[in-house]
Design a protein around this nucleic acid. Structure first.
Lengths: 202, 202
DNA sequence: TAACTGATCGAACGATCGTACTAATAAGCG
DNA sequence: CGCTTATTAGTACGATCGTTCGATCAGTTA
């Protein structure tokens, strides 16, 4: 148990930094995250921000960890409150779309934005982002497999293939909603997902 | 007719700059494009690069125009060599995937990368990128409409909806291939597109 | 109270950014 | 050859970047 006032204060500052940093990163990317800018916006000294992370790369990695935690609580956990199988699969799809639509991060899905930013830059940041995406697709695939074993989804479909397609529909909605200011893209995405899954009823 | 040696020389330099700039932008984004960096890599002076565009934003806009031209010659024009209708639609899908897979730009699809970078930053760059995406989706939709009028595609499908889905499959392949180093994503994408279109035979 | 620890600050560093100037260079043209 | 025009070079500016270092302030512990 931690009641040391100094640690509590530091933890509070750290959370403030990471919260603002997630917003900036989702809007403008992890490279646009500058320590001086964070310090200015949060009314803290540059070295105060820096001391929490030790380097810009460590800051970026900490921001990604924080975003994973937000994503888990807003998308993954609600889906796991549903029964395994088709119900949970639908909750994953719809939970993701709602997470993008409601702008949990102001720049849309955090991992879409920074994933595209780092997908061609070698380094630890890219590795962590790739791993996060792999975990997400694996979660989709496992949920599909569960639904198949429960007899709720046609056995003939390849789980990785269906995971790819569902994720494609969702991220395309995110992209269109942001770049094109086209909120109807979420409807299109839900239509596509619903009709793809309807074809796989058993 | 232009045979003025000075203009020819300037045009050549400008092309060299834009070519390198497109590669950098596809890999690291339009903001990572710095005038000093371009000058260093191309062995010209900073002011030499600057003089061609007048500002960084104008450089970014010129790079986008150049990328549109590359995209048109590699994807759109080959598809228009095919007969209108289903043939042309399939050429658009496959041409796009091949364009991404062959790394016409080293960072994958130029417009995917910079679109994600600017989708939440107001300004002229975003406006131009949004317009380019709209044109691309409109081209898809028109090609679908043509196929319907030729009796090659089920009339019941909404062209904008199908365009959304086909584009979703393609961009998802680009994203997975880059971030996950997963070249099989192109196969998954082709499978998804083929089976989606097969369901719409008349 | 004294000693210690952790969080934060302030100032400075070298580097790079976009941009603004004024030469220098090269090509066309009389 | 001179005169004009277009492209490049050179230099300097203020701003911001990530990082380093020593000082300062707040809270714990003996």
């Amino acid at each position: 148990m931690t009641t040391d006032g100094r640690l509590v204060r530091g933890d509070h500052t750290r959370r403030r930094i990471l919260s603002r940093a997630m917003d900036i990163a989702s809007l403008e990317g992890l490279e646009a995250l500058s320590i001086g800018r964070l310090a200015g916006e949060l009314k803290v000294s540059k070295s105060g921000v820096f001391a929490h992370f030790g380097s810009k790369e460590e800051l970026q990695l900490a921001v990604i960890r924080a975003a994973k935690s937000v994503f888990a609580s807003r998308v993954v956990e609600p889906a796991f409150a549903e029964a395994p199988g088709r119900r949970r699969l639908e909750a994953l799809c719809d939970g993701w779309l709602t997470y993008s639509e409601r702008r949990v991060f102001p720049g849309g899905c955090f991992f879409f934005s920074v994933g595209a930013e780092f997908d061609a830059r070698p380094g630890r940041v890219r590795d962590v982002l790739a791993e996060a995406r792999r975990e997400w697709l694996a979660l989709y695939a496992q949920t599909i497999r569960d639904a198949q074993q429960l007899g709720e989804l046609d056995d003939s479909v390849n789980p990785a293939q269906l995971a790819f397609e569902l994720d494609a529909f969702a991220t395309a909605a995110n992209s269109a909603a942001l770049l094109l200011d086209d909120a109807t893209a979420y409807d299109r995405s839900r239509t596509a997902i619903r009709s793809r899954l309807a074809a796989l009823k058993t």
